[in-house]
Structure formats: structure tokens, C-alpha cells
Design a protein around this nucleic acid. Structure first.
Lengths: 348, 348
DNA sequence: CTGAAAGCGCTTACAG
DNA sequence: CTGAAAGCGCTTACAG
């Protein structure tokens, strides 16, 4: 496009500076062996003509485009597709990349299309690397998909399916442990868990942390207190009803695998006429924005998503530029953020 | 990158199919004048080799890359940079683009850098068009910036600074009118407005709607009830304090220019020990997600951001492909969403 | 209907 | 230190 707009090329710069195209290129790219006087003449010409190199022409010869594809996978319906934690990630990845002269391609795909779309995006060579936000995809499936991609890939908020894949994640076991321990420390013994999702690392790890805290406190694990959840808001609403129905003994507290599901639980319990935290306590994980303004200010496990995005961008830029010195797999730590959704039980 | 990975080019396809490169190209691109038997042979070779054309090589000759730069401008600090309404926009733009074979570049820039960054991005020729989410930039400034860009540009949730610029926006005057009218209909006469921002179309239009409703109801405009706000959450918190301090007569209701500032107001009034809606009613605009779960379920003006993103993407794809038939400026309508933050006054 | 050639805007050896 | 040439992967006239 840009009909009728003359585009300034390196030829124009070379002509104005009175040098060959190759010399202009060497000058602009700060290569060795250009007389400083010549370089200056070229730079002046370039700035006079307002020259910007065509990155795609460059990519053709350098075989690198300094572009990263961020791929977020979610459900088919856009309405259910809003984890504010991902937004923080997206912001900090993009800003870090842009600040360092990299571009970010954003791809929003449907979970069911991952097997087709991720290899396709990788193969299309629009970018030098992939950043994947595919938290809800089982390890096995993700591993298989990534076997087909020849580009460096980094996964976020989840463990890498194997040690070839880079990751920046959280200590998700600790997230589950901290949340559950906080409930136990407040006197709770019957604790529901919403968010079981077999094969999905974030879910398995958070559940593992839940069990770990139980064991440590000598509380017997009761599988009737565990229900599945897909980490979208709706499944919190559905899950809490199921939990109330299926549990052999009604829970006094619930830990949801993430805050989004906790929002669903708040809605669900309200519909059932059950008060938080008077009747049932609730704790989430992620610390998405504005939890303090909810009807029930939600106690949660806070994780550093902005930092995660920054590190992921740094890591991938290092890999692309070949000067990466960061560890392959980076794990960030989380901490509890106490608000008002957990009641202290005095019955012990 | 992709060290050591052999990349399949059109040459390989041509060789395997036993035709010339130009014929392979014509076959793949479905050009006229290729025998169907030849075409089939080429297609088979391409799929056998898993061939994907290099879009950047294509762009060099077609002078189009089927890529759109989405530019979001915000404050320097990422922490204050989270309007959920923008997220909906981003999701629907990107998904619509991707579904139609277009790529989306995401650029997150600082408001202060708009004058440098927007022309730079446009000039870098990484994309065929620009989608701008720069709601807080004054018309005059945006107009000046866009004079320097040779690419088609579309602005969202704001009026176009002149008729060369495309836009998909809301009837922001109506947003202000509907919100204020709803308060008036509920018996309020002293209504505060938070979010005055001279020169910024969204703010001016919403304020205009506010005044229009006042005039219609025969209520005199009181400038001590209007305070500025930059449409970020923090300015709601600061603004409501200022409103309480400066107003000649304490308002019984407040209309904030957007929901984000309303969140700040909820926080601010709570700190002052003032209850919503018992002491002061509150109404926002945008209908960001989960307002029904707030301490005070917020009544607001709902606007179709998903639809806006979809239309913006459609429009810009049409412009790029040269088959655009949509109007230059598209205005979507909003409607009230009643929750519980407005009290009916019976004193009239 | 098919193929050889030119060219998009760059960079990278290489000759001088 | 500088310039002419080749080539990255593609498409587009154009000749046959």
C-alpha cells in the first residue's frame, strides 16, 4: 500500500551521499572499515531523507526479523476469554520487546486449533521465536506440538513439557501450599479444591501444593472435596455447586486454582445464599487487579506477572541475539495477600 | 535463526514438480493460465515438502504485508495501564485479523512518546495500516501526528481528528446523556462529573452529554460539580476528594467518565466513610467485566467493545485489500446497564 | 500454457 | 577504505 508515496531506499541515501550502496549499508550498520568522514556523510543523507530501512528486506538476507510471536490460546468464545493476569503478561512482554527494538506479533487462537496453528505460525517464519501462553494445555499435547516447531519457544506460567523448551513459571506447588496452609492456620480442616485438571501442569501442581499442606498438618485427604475446573470464571460457578453437592462433609473453606474461578465461586455461593467468609471461606491465586473492591475482598496468592513478562522477553531476546545467559527455566516465587475472604475458626 | 534447519523454498517445490519457479508461483497463487494438471502437480509437491511461502519475500515484491499495527498508548508505568475495555478491543481485533489471514503487531507505547513512536512505526513499513487506541490524546495533537503518517489509520473509541482519518467510535455524547438522565430520572439534581479533560474528544463528548441531560431537565449547570480526570483509576480516587472539597453543594450522585475512574471513586468514598448508594449514587461508563461482583454493583453505560474491535479489523482489512465498502466513520450505540449503585431519591 | 529474466531492498563476501 | 556483484525468496511482466 502507500499508493503514490515514494519510499526512500538505501539507494537514495547512497546517491545523495555520493557513495555505493554497499558503503551506505556498512556506514548505517556501523560496520568496520568505513572512514568516519564517509560515515558521517551517509548518516546525514539518511537523516535528511528520513530513511528507515525496510526490515523485511533485511530479514531476507540476515535470516532474522527481530520479531516474536506471542500466542495466547483460549476458548472459542471471546466473552470467556479474559484473564487479567494474561493482560499483565502481555503488556510487559510487549513493552520490553518494543523498548529493545523488537516487534511483537500477537496471535489469539482457539485451544482446539493449537495443534494446527502453533506449528503453522512457527513455520510461516514471520518471527524468530515463540512465547506461548497456553496454560490449559496438557504437557503431553504441548510437547507433541512443540516437536514440530523449529523456532525457540518459551512457555509461561507453566512447566516446560521437556528440557528443550524454555519457561518462565511460578512455583505453582508453592502457590497451592501457601493458600491451603493459610486456611489451615486459620483453623480450617475441611477444605475444598476447585480446579483439578488432569495432565495440566498448573492445575496438577497447585493441587499437589494443596495436598502437601494437608499432609503436613495431618489432615486426611478427602477426594470428595476436590472438583474439576478449567480455570475460566464459569467453572468456578459450576464447580462450587458441584462441590456442595458431592462433598461428604461440607467444606468450611475453598481454595480455587485461580482468581478467575474464585469470582465464579463468589457468584455461585451468593446464588446459594451462602455467605463468604461467614459460612465458607475462600482463597484464590494470581492477585488480579481490583480484588480489594469486590463484594468479598479476596485473599489470594500474588504472583509477579509483570516481572514474568519482562523476564520472558529478556530471555527470548537473548536467545535470538545469541547472547543469552539466563537459565533455561526460570521459576518466580509468589506470596500470600491477605484480604477478607477467610474467616478465622475458633473451634479448635 | 533456525540454525541448521533447511527451509523449503519455492525453488524446491518447483524442482520437485518439474516446473519453473514462475510456474510454481502462478500455480500456488491460483493465477490464470496454469493447466490444472500442472497446478495439481505443484500443489502436491508443495504439500509434500510442507511448503510455506516466506511472507517477507512476498511483501518485497507485492509491497504489502497483510499486517496491521495495533498501537496502544498509556502511561509510563505498567501498573496503571489496565483498561479492561481495551483488552476486549485487542482480543476481537486480533482474532478477526488472524481469522482472515492477517497478522497483528502489538505496540504499547507511552503517551509522551506518541509524537515520535507513531510516525516511526508507520514509517518502518512493518505493517500496511495502523489501528490506534489513543483515547487520551487531544484531537489537535493526534491530527498533527497523523499528518506524518502515510499509512491508513483508524482510531477507536474517539472521534477522528479530521475526515481523512477513519474511526470506529461510540456516541460518547449519548453515553454522558444516558448516564446523567438516569440519575435525574432517579431524582438527583446535584450531580458531580469526574473526567473533564480539555481537548480530548471522549471526555468532552461525555461532558457534553452530561450538560445536555441537565439542560433538558431544567437543572442549572454548576461548574463546582465538575472535576478533571484522566480516565485512569487513580484519578477517580483523587477526583472524588476534590469534588467533595470544591462543590458548593454536596452532590447526591456522581457520573464518572468511565468505569475505571468509578473504581477509584468507590475506593475514595469508602475512605471518606461515605456509602454508595445510600449517601452518594454512582454511575460509570463502559461496562467492564465483573462489575456485578463489586462491593457496589456498578450501574453503567454498556458499550460494544467486542463489536467495535471486529468492525475496526474488518474496515482496515477492506482498506488494505482495496475492497472496502464500509463508511469512513462508524459510530456504535451504547445502553444503560442498571445495577445497584444508584439510589432513587423520593424527595421530589 | 510455460519458462527465463528482472527486480523488490537489503547485506555480505570479495576484488581492488 | 570503497565499490561492483551476487543473492536472500518471492512475483510480475514478457517472450516463446
Amino acid at each position: 500500500l502507500g499508493v503514490g508515496v515514494l519510499v526512500v531506499t538505501i539507494k537514495d541515501v547512497a546517491k545523495l551521499a555520493g557513495v555505493a550502496v554497499s558503503t551506505a549499508s556498512n556506514a548505517i550498520n556501523n560496520k568496520y572499515g568505513v572512514k568516519s568522514e564517509t560515515r558521517q556523510r551517509v548518516m546525514e543523507a539518511a537523516s535528511k531523507l528520513n530513511y528507515t530501512p525496510n526490515p523485511y528486506a533485511q530479514s531476507l538476507v540476515t535470516n532474522s526479523i527481530r520479531n516474536v510471536s506471542i500466542i495466547i490460546s483460549g476458548p472459542a468464545s471471546l466473552n470467556f476469554f479474559a484473564n487479567p493476569a494474561f493482560d499483565e503478561l502481555l503488556k510487559s512482554i510487549t513493552q520490553t520487546l518494543n523498548t529493545n527494538g523488537f516487534q511483537a506479533h500477537l496471535n489469539i487462537i482457539r485451544k482446539e486449533d493449537e495443534g494446527i496453528d502453533i506449528p503453522r505460525i512457527a513455520q510461516s517464519r514471520v518471527s524468530d521465536a515463540l512465547i506461548l501462553i497456553t496454560t490449559r494445555t496438557p504437557d503431553k499435547i504441548l510437547e507433541k506440538i512443540l516437536e514440530e516447531v523449529a523456532l525457540p519457544a518459551i512457555v509461561l506460567i507453566r512447566s516446560a513439557p521437556n528440557d528443550k523448551v524454555l519457561c518462565v513459571s511460578l512455583d505453582n506447588v508453592k502457590c497451592g501450599y501457601l493458600a491451603t496452609k493459610f486456611l489451615i492456620d486459620n483453623g480450617h480442616k475441611h477444605i475444598g479444591f476447585i480446579g483439578a485438571l488432569p495432565g495440566v501442569s498448573i492445575a496438577e501442581q497447585r493441587l499437589e501444593g494443596y495436598k502437601m499442606a494437608l499432609v503436613e498438618a495431618g489432615i486426611e485427604f478427602d477426594d470428595s472435596l476436590v472438583v474439576s475446573g478449567d480455570y475460566y470464571q464459569e467453572s468456578g460457578l459450576v464447580g462450587v455447586r458441584q462441590l456442595l453437592r458431592q462433598s461428604r462433609q461440607q467444606p468450611t473453606a475453598i481454595f480455587t486454582g485461580n482468581d478467575l474461578m474464585a469470582l465464579g465461586v463468589i457468584e455461585g455461593l451468593e446464588q446459594e445464599g451462602i455467605s463468604i467468609p461467614e459460612d465458607i471461606s475462600l482463597i484464590g491465586s494470581d492477585n488480579i487487579p481490583n480484588l480489594h473492591l469486590l463484594r468479598v475482598p479476596l485473599t489470594t496468592i500474588a504472583s509477579p506477572f509483570l516481572e514474568m513478562g519482562r523476564l520472558a522477553a529478556k530471555k527470548i531476546m537473548g536467545v535470538i541475539d545469541g547472547d543469552d545467559e539466563m537459565p533455561k527455566q526460570i521459576i518466580l516465587t509468589s506470596e500470600i495477600r491477605v484480604r477478607k475472604s477467610v474467616k478465622r475458626l475458633h473451634s479448635f
